[in-house]
Amino acid sequence: MAHLRFLYPARSSEHGGNATTARRISQALESRGHVCTVQQISREEAPKTILQPDDKAGAPEVLIALHAVDCAPATQAAAAEAGIPWIVVFPGTDLNGKPSRAAVAAVAEAQAAVALAPHARKRAVELYDRHDIEAVPQAAQALPEPRGGAPLPAHAPALPENPFLIVQPTGIRSVKAPCVGIEALAALAKEEPRLQLWIAGPELEEAEAMRLRETVAAHPWAHWLGALPQDELAGVVRRANLILSTSRSEGAAPNSLLEAALFSKPILASDIPAHRFFPGARFLFQDARELRRKVRAQLENPADAQMAARQLRETTRTQFDRTREAVAWDRLVARVMG
């Protein structure tokens, strides 16, 4: 068994998708007997820092970079210095726009390259001109069971009587379009005073965070809770009537939607390739009008939405199995180690 070091961008939040993916895959590989450490790095991180031995596990034997643009060049340099294999993973934001020459060159040197969904593999091949990229769909990992009966964060606003609570777990950056739901549902909120929208996620782009603050200030039924630890997020998701994603781009089935599905929560998501992969076409909206129509339908007939959510939970358990992901990664690591 090997010591594997996962590297994800320093600019990522510890509550964000990159960190969640690193923790989940490392836990999967630990279940197969490997020792894993997780580290944040900058684009200019020195090989010495990346290769720093762990007190218990010693020096890493395989490096795994979770971002082609932000992590691959530094990881490639460290792996070359140490003479060890490395793997690059495309989590999603590295598939938006043209990557740097340094990123493309580094990706070409990795012993293996992994996308987290079939559509993401296709995009990665186009951008990085590497045709042996593998697709290893990520598993669904449940949020922790909330302590004390699903407590809400202390700073969460009071809810109206018989609320219909929409929760949008997302990092605050332009590609996630965090203001879209508020703007699309404003007219419906005037008709339905029990409608509430809570956005839970860290600030990742200052300009988008400022725009969200201004949008929330103009709509008193909408609130931004900021970044939440996993147990508080679990409580918020448990309380939700609906989980929303308005993202314009995702590299795989979003962790937040997989987590919601395991809690049997109704989901609505923007019509993009990742969301067609999961949760699937019946849960998507193409524009503001369709979002309002589908939210109204759930307000008026929650039983149908709950039935669909229970069906999606079973699909999620079957298609996004953690053991399957662990086996796939174990085989990949064995192959790159020769």
Results as ranks from 00 to 15, higher is better:
215 T>K: 06
217 A>H: 09
206 E>Y: 14
225 L>V: 08
221 W>P: 03
227 A>C: 10
229 P>D: 11
207 A>R: 09
225 L>P: 01
200 A>P: 03
229 P>F: 11
218 A>P: 04
211 R>D: 12
198 W>I: 03
227 A>F: 08
220 P>F: 13
213 R>M: 14
204 L>E: 13
209 A>M: 07
222 A>W: 00
217 A>M: 08
207 A>L: 10
224 W>D: 04
212 L>I: 06
197 L>W: 02
218 A>W: 10
213 R>P: 07
212 L>K: 00
225 L>Y: 02
218 A>S: 15
224 W>C: 07
206 E>A: 15
197 L>I: 08
229 P>A: 14
218 A>H: 10
199 I>G: 02
198 W>V: 05
224 W>T: 06
226 G>V: 04
221 W>E: 02
227 A>P: 04
218 A>M: 15
228 L>M: 08
206 E>P: 07
208 E>P: 05
199 I>R: 00
223 H>C: 14
227 A>Y: 04
199 I>H: 02
214 E>D: 12
204 L>T: 08
197 L>Y: 06
210 M>F: 12
204 L>M: 14
207 A>W: 07
210 M>L: 13
217 A>F: 13
219 H>N: 15
219 H>T: 14
209 A>P: 00
213 R>D: 14
226 G>Q: 05
203 E>M: 12
201 G>L: 00
216 V>F: 05
215 T>C: 13
227 A>R: 05
217 A>R: 08
229 P>C: 13
203 E>G: 13
210 M>S: 14
207 A>V: 09
211 R>A: 15
224 W>L: 08
207 A>Y: 09
198 W>N: 02
206 E>I: 15
228 L>R: 00
208 E>F: 05
205 E>D: 12
204 L>S: 11
197 L>M: 13
198 W>R: 03
217 A>W: 11
